[in-house]
Design a protein around this nucleic acid. Structure first.
Lengths: 232, 232
DNA sequence: GCAAAAGTGTTTGGTCTACACCCATGA
DNA sequence: TCATGGGTGTAGACCAAACACTTTTGC
């Protein structure tokens, strides 16, 4: 996988003489792993002095933001085919000591099977969201993660975005767990099902998951595309 | 008011040799004028071949996005002290024929008295939102305006943002008009008041507006800061 | 047979909507 | 006195939350 931008190919982009800022894309990657919300973080502890960083790189001219995003995500993590959404564009005063950077932040949701199949664990770690601390991140990455989590919370409550964290076929308990672990709350089983079914969010497949004690019905989402509901 | 960036001062930022993109800020400005939602648009019909444009300019290094925003807004419209909120960062393929631009879009809300006092009407026009057409805007500015309107709708429904379109003291009818003209709907007077009061969104000042037939009570917002409610 | 997770309804309180008449003032 | 906008309450429908026991399977 080639770099879309090479920092010093034609011109020193950090030069004091250049009057325009450098732009980067930062990517907060969420997944549900073993019933818990996790982040995919760079594990280059040497480079970042024992702090975590979310994957990022500098944006190249000529390519769209989508192309830059895909290039950065795949190059830095080997992950492909994620749900992605732009969050916010921050001005980060002294990211590198070489000058500030304008960072366009995204978050991505990746199904754990897709993650495990593709990801390069020599480059990234899987870290539980509930176990991260404010001071163990470089730059303003903790702020970006918090912002991403807020957006994720909101989208969970008002859309069918949970589909991007689940396998195509899933049990209702798995769906409910996504809401409980991300929104950090207990939900009544019966009320949860009533809401989900009243919205026509998911439908039965007729198949059963026999890996649990009593076999559980398997469901799929009615809509493949992101759709606004009022879920929770 | 000085330009934070001068396009050609040190280096040709449009040069093919430069591998990083140019960043601009685009500003969608809303106000309520004579009971209707209006936009503040550049009226340089010669430069833009009889199309409208929203105020924008190129982002300068060294200054924060806030500073760049304030500089662009004031320089291009003379408007000050607005509510502003970042919307989205678009990649605009061929903004100038000189290459694409990454545009960080904002929307701003300005109280009409502030607008009238400060604005430079030789630079901008006031145009009714309901009378604009898709094909009378340059670049992707119509898309940005639509996006801004959506965000404004949402914020109206779920926050106290209406305060930024009103004078500090206002009648309930004025508040209700903001909801009706922006959300393009009729609202029952009694139900509207019940909601607003149950939320403690506004409170009486004890003063009366005697410019109407029967004098109307004047209200102020309880919170000066943006706060999330569920208004409508 | 027992442990573990799946599946299933009803009641109650609160919230939302629809709806119409009188009041205070200026002209 | 009349035209204009301001101010006020109730009843019915719908929605949301609380709550516990039975079923199916593997071990």
């Amino acid at each position: 996988m080639n770099y879309l931008i090479d920092e010093n190919k034609f011109f020193d982009i950090w030069s004091e003489k250049l009057t325009i800022p450098v732009v980067a894309i930062d990517i907060v990657i969420f997944t549900i792993y073993k019933w818990e919300l996790c982040l995919v973080l760079w594990n280059d502890k040497k480079r970042f002095k024992d702090k975590y960083a979310i994957p990022w790189w500098i944006v190249a001219k000529w390519f769209s933001l989508e192309e830059n995003f895909d290039n950065i995500l795949e190059r830095e993590t080997w992950i492909k085919w994620v749900y992605k959404e732009q969050l916010y564009t921050f001005w980060s005063p002294s990211r590198d000591g070489r000058g500030h950077v304008i960072s366009i932040s995204y978050y991505a949701l990746v199904n754990v099977n897709n993650l495990i199949t593709n990801v390069n664990f020599t480059k990234v770690d899987l870290v539980k969201y509930n176990e991260i601390n404010d001071n163990e991140f470089v730059y303003d990455h903790k702020k970006i993660i918090k912002y991403a989590k807020q957006r994720l919370d909101w989208k969970l409550e008002y859309t069918n975005i949970a589909k991007d964290l689940l396998s195509p076929y899933f049990r209702i308990a798995e769906l409910q767990n996504i809401y409980e672990t991300i929104l950090w709350t207990k939900i009544d089983k019966r009320n949860f099902q009533k809401k989900i079914f009243k919205l026509w969010l998911i439908k039965e497949t007729g198949e059963l998951d026999k890996s649990t004690n009593r076999p559980a019905k398997l469901y799929i989402f009615v809509d493949k595309e992101l759709k606004i509901y009022e879920v929770i």
